[in-house]
Design a protein around this nucleic acid. Structure first.
Lengths: 235, 235
DNA sequence: TCGACGAATTGGTACGACCTCTACCGTCCG
DNA sequence: CGGACGGTAGAGGTCGTACCAATTCGTCGA
């Protein structure tokens, strides 16, 4: 994909690619400050307006960070920064895509649970216990969902793969938000969720990767079933 | 997550969120045409420059598509459109993150292969055969990598989950693969790769999900091993 | 009837002006 | 002498206008 020599492409797009390339080449290192918008525009031979569009795009992508009055900086380029847009995808998606999202989660979450079983420490287990009880005691749907989300976040963190964690974070946000709107308790899903979480927790305590994998698969399977029923009448 | 009433946030960011929300709410449907930049800016009470930045950001995200002279349209909002930025992550990432990316692929690819085993048709199998022979006959690294990429794409397509396919596509982005293969050739791994692909292919022919899963895991495992060795010494 | 021209529309680019926030530095007071 | 205050230059944020370029579509002429 050699850039076709400035052919039919917008100036802004070229600027985006240029900056991206310079970062990939190591010319702009993580955390480093970039030249000013004005200098950068002059350097690439385009107007500040266009340069700003390019910078904004890269900012949304999580590659750059603009600090008012201070300058433009390259982010740390960690998965969490770069995969933030993943959550947006989940939020905008509708219909069958929602189901597909859950199915991907059904693949990743068990793997994360298995990895976590081999690595989680006592502090992590304690956090899981705390989230579980907090979830039981929660009153508002939003509160309960928040602890549910945190429960999963602790596990993905313990899995030790930030990329995996960032993806699952994005995947979860949508599912859980939907649950808030729908009202969690209908159909008595809440107690079942507790037991599923408990099963995952116990497997982690026993450092049983396969047990954790299965328990997580069961849990997400239930979510998938829920998503399948909801399909189509949302968004 | 109620938008904090125009607190400390830039005008452009508000515009991005506003459009995003309207799409999520269904006010702007996939494929639909939006008002003109000028109207949109007036509607949200900001300048056209700022509105353009917002639109550009959403364009890069794969949510909008601007057609010169024609107008701005919402994309089909399919996973392939939205997850295009995922490839950027792979292009920019370095060090440990590269390893983490491969590890995620190691989770997803076997699952995709297993799903494909149950669904792939004769045409798909024929394409796999074609890519394998083309890869054998290829001369340049780029050519070979292209067929390798296509081989995997056929499988993920057959898996029937566009989200999964889009993620794996991003993980396998050209630049990323090019970097992998650059080092690969020196070690004469080509023949081994062929055999690994062949193992996957045979499992698919026999409609053996578990066989396909294992074969794919072995294949990606080799890539992971390579990434682990390369870790750290690449810009 | 149909094709070509041209005006209106719409995104793309460029300046230039001004505002707001940040960081830095010199001065003044304790 | 040292820390707090305040000013100032520099950077991003916003705005408005003007003009370019691609598309669209209606109109006019062959």
């Amino acid at each position: 994909m050699t850039d076709d020599a400035g052919a039919r492409t917008t100036v802004t797009q070229r600027a985006i690619d240029e900056i991206k390339t310079r970062i990939a080449m190591g010319e702009f290192a993580p955390g480093q400050r970039l030249p000013t918008e004005r200098d950068l525009a002059a350097d690439l031979g385009l107007s500040r307006s266009s340069m700003r569009e390019a910078i904004r795009a890269l900012t949304v992508m999580g590659v750059l960070e603009a600090r008012h009055g201070a300058g433009i900086y390259v982010t740390r380029l960690e998965p969490g920064d770069l995969l933030e847009t993943f959550g947006v995808v989940a939020e905008i998606s509708r219909g069958d895509t929602l189901l597909h999202l859950v199915q991907v989660r059904k693949i990743l979450e068990p793997a994360a649970a298995a990895a976590a079983a081999a690595r989680i420490d006592e502090a992590g287990l304690a956090r899981l216990r705390a989230e579980m009880t907090a979830m039981e005691r929660g009153t508002t749907a939003e509160e309960i969902v928040g602890h549910d989300l945190e429960f999963h976040r602790v596990i993905t963190e313990a899995a030790g793969n930030p990329v995996l964690g960032a993806i699952l974070d994005g995947l979860n946000s949508r599912t859980f938000r939907a649950r808030v709107w729908r009202g969690y308790r209908e159909e008595g899903v809440f107690p079942r969720t507790y037991h599923e979480h408990d099963a995952i927790y116990r497997a982690l305590v026993e450092r049983d990767p396969d047990g954790a994998r299965v328990a997580a698969a069961v849990h997400i399977g239930a979510v998938e079933e829920w998503a399948r029923r909801q399909r189509g009448d949302e968004g």
